[in-house]
């Protein structure tokens, strides 16, 4: 059981293994797209892990990357079409980043490192947990960026009007792309310090 909980903190795909960073940073200006993105990655990661694990003994090793890419892009197209049909505005906001799930290194990384050598059900669970570990970071970054940058959460205003009347201003810098990087840097810093203090005691 322990190995499945790893992705949540100890082996977090973004903070520790630096996988799948590209999309993580670009979609976190607001909470809603970040949650949708996290869900999509979880679905794609779990399903493709499951399928690759089912056919792992029949894939010739030389062409396994192509096979993996095809399976992953099949699920990404499904997710993309579902998003376009049900959540059109969010899908416009995520624009190319849904398509870029194909080249998200978390998914290829889990396929290579886990699904090719494990049974289908453990692979499914591994995919789900890695998706959640990825999603956690996205949600934390998006929470701070939306709260400090636009004063809203999930498009609802959180900062009271009286603060604005008293001269409170939204920090416009938080919406701009560079702040996402700096926030992730700070998260790694905080996590690193926590680990060091626990390992010392």
């Amino acid at each position: 059981m322990k190995q499945y909980l790893g992705p949540l903190s100890k082996d977090n795909p973004i903070l520790v293994q630096t996988l799948g960073v590209c999309s993580a940073l670009a979609v976190t200006a607001q909470l809603k797209p970040a949650v949708i993105m996290a869900l999509s990655v979880t679905v794609v990661c779990a399903c493709s892990n499951f399928i690759i694990s089912l056919i792992r003994n029949t894939i010739p090793p030389r062409i396994r990357i192509i096979v993996q890419l095809l399976v992953v892009s099949f699920f990404v197209i499904l997710v993309d079409q579902v998003l376009q049909a049900t959540l059109y505005d969010i899908s416009k906001m995520l624009s190319v980043f849904v398509g870029l799930i194909i080249t998200n290194c978390i998914i290829m990384g889990r396929l290579e490192a886990f699904a090719l050598s494990h049974k289908p059900l453990p692979s499914l669970l591994d995919g789900v947990m890695n998706g959640i570990g990825y999603g956690l970071v996205l949600v934390v970054v998006a929470f701070f960026r939306e709260l400090l940058g636009s004063g809203t959460l999930w498009n609802h205003q959180v900062v009271p009007d009286s603060w604005y009347a008293a001269g409170y201003l939204n920090n416009g810098l938080m919406i701009l792309p560079p702040m996402a990087l700096i926030l992730v840097g700070v998260m790694i810093w905080a996590k690193g310090s926590l680990n060091h203090s626990t390992s010392r005691s």
Binding site: L176, L181, I182, G185, V186, G192
Partner: peptide, 22 residues
Amino acid sequence: PLALQGNGIAYIITGLLGMGFM
């Protein structure tokens, strides 16, 4: 700082470079 070494500082530098490019 020990906990910031490696990837942590790399992210922050990229963020600062990005601000420069803005």
